[in-house]
């Protein structure tokens, strides 16, 4: 599991942490049953506050991606695969809509990509 955060970014750190875990679930590089590092250890490794990590983990738990157990740390939930599949289906549907709208406007693939990249860093 690889977690990337950027303290210089405007996005809150706990959001970045949660996004990092979500991205890896979507990419299939972590799967249900995998144990994430303990919040204390992760906070120390990332050089951020313990509560920030807990807030990120709690967010993922509320989304049904993680199970948090006292003393056992954070485990990727069995339903996480289904959730990430659903997320990907939503993304695919949204992309299809974007494609149709872009074609109506006559945008080239490059112009669309530029628009997406500009908006993505927000």
């Amino acid at each position: 599991m690889l977690i990337r955060i950027d303290p210089a970014s405007d996005v809150p750190l706990y959001e970045q942490l949660a996004a990092s875990v979500r991205a890896q679930l979507a990419a299939g590089s972590i799967a249900a049953g995998e144990r994430l590092p303990g919040a204390r250890d992760l906070a120390q490794s990332l050089g951020i506050n313990l509560h920030t990590v807990l807030r990120g983990y709690n967010l993922l738990r509320d989304e049904g991606l993680l199970e948090l157990r006292r003393g056992r740390g954070a485990v990727v939930a069995g339903s996480a695969d289904a959730v990430s599949t659903a997320d990907r289906a939503t993304l695919a549907a949204a992309l299809e809509e974007v494609r149709r709208a872009a074609q109506r406007l006559g945008l080239s693939a490059d112009e669309l990509a530029t628009l997406v990249t500009k908006g993505y860093g927000r």
């Binding site: 977690i3 990337r4 955060i5 950027d6 995998e34 144990r35 590092p37 250890d41």
Partner: peptide, 12 residues
Amino acid sequence: LGPTEVAVWSRV
């Protein structure tokens, strides 16, 4: 790695 980016990889 971005100039201010922090990444942690962890695995059992």
